[in-house]
Simulated assay, not measured.
Amino acid sequence: MTRGDVSALTVFRGRAGDHNERGMRGARLLGEELARRTGSGSVSIGQSRPALNASWETELAAALPELRRLARRYEEVLRAGSVPVTAMNRCAVGLATLPVVARHRPDACVVWLDAHPDLNTPGTSGSGYLGGMVLAGATGMWDSGLGADLSADNIVLGGARDIDPAEQRMLDEGLVRSVPVGADLPERLRSAVAGRPVHFHLDCDVLEPGILSTDYPVPGGMTLEQLRAVSEVLAEHELVGIELGEFEGGRSAEENAAAGAPELVGAVEPLLRVLDGR
């Protein structure tokens, strides 16, 4: 699963602007499934705690210690020549990972599959939700305290459809490339990536509501079959990292069994096969 000599699988369950604890439970389930599929050990950062449901400033302050631990973990994995594979609770965790990836691999394209562009800043966000500011923070549109090394030219959005006015202006101006859901999504992503190395990030709300449990379901999403087709296309490229987030677990064994972790990991298995050399 790794190209270097450091175990690359990480499970992040710390606070990251959560509205509930289901994403923390979901990260654990995904980590277990990834470990089972790959035969890899994992490193865990953070633990499930009650959600704060507070302002973005309060959420960020609470998350920073563990996000910084994750950033150091990415530094270690990438310095070792390994490919980080991370199960995370919320997309806000990308505030810690993306700047590190960009510093080590400024040539890499971040393929961000998400129902939302996450290009808001504290000044443009109507909700103040930390997760909606990830790409804006990683590119320096606001200061998260975690780095701003990612170039907007190296972002390709896939499946975004719940878009705020300020985000839409950026897309209209071509500051960030966006590829909508559709039958031609895999081919359009191949064209947008243009042969670059790929760091892959998946928010489960990019999928059609009802396939998996997510915090922000948005109609008009992808199917698992379409996600696998996208994974097949991206597996043609050099992989720099894989992140899976916004997957929610339940409180009981029955709820967790029905949550769909095996189906989700199965849909991205083409990427895991590349890392395994199969």
Rank of each mutant, 00 (worst) to 15 (best):
G31A: 11
G31W: 09
E32S: 13
E32N: 11
E33W: 03
E33N: 07
L34E: 09
L34Y: 12
A35K: 08
R36F: 12
R36K: 15
R37E: 14
R37P: 02
R37T: 13
G39P: 03
S40K: 01
V43W: 11
V43N: 11
V43H: 14
V43S: 12
I45Q: 06
I45E: 08
G46E: 04
S48T: 14
R49I: 11
R49E: 14
R49C: 04
P50C: 09
P50S: 11
P50A: 15
P50N: 11
A51W: 01
L52Q: 05
L52N: 05
N53L: 11
A54L: 00
S55A: 14
S55C: 06
W56A: 06
E57M: 08
E57P: 03
E57G: 02
E59I: 10
E59L: 07
L60I: 06
L60K: 08
A61M: 01
A61I: 02
A62Q: 08
A62K: 09
A62N: 02
A63H: 05
A63W: 04
P65Q: 07
P65Y: 03
L67M: 13
L67F: 04
L67R: 00
L67E: 09
L67D: 11
R68V: 10
R69E: 09
R69L: 14
R69Q: 15
A71V: 07
R72I: 00
R72L: 09
R72G: 12
R73L: 03
Y74A: 04
Y74S: 05
Y74T: 05
Y74P: 01
Y74I: 05
E76I: 01
E76K: 11
E76Y: 00
V77G: 06
V77A: 11
V77I: 15
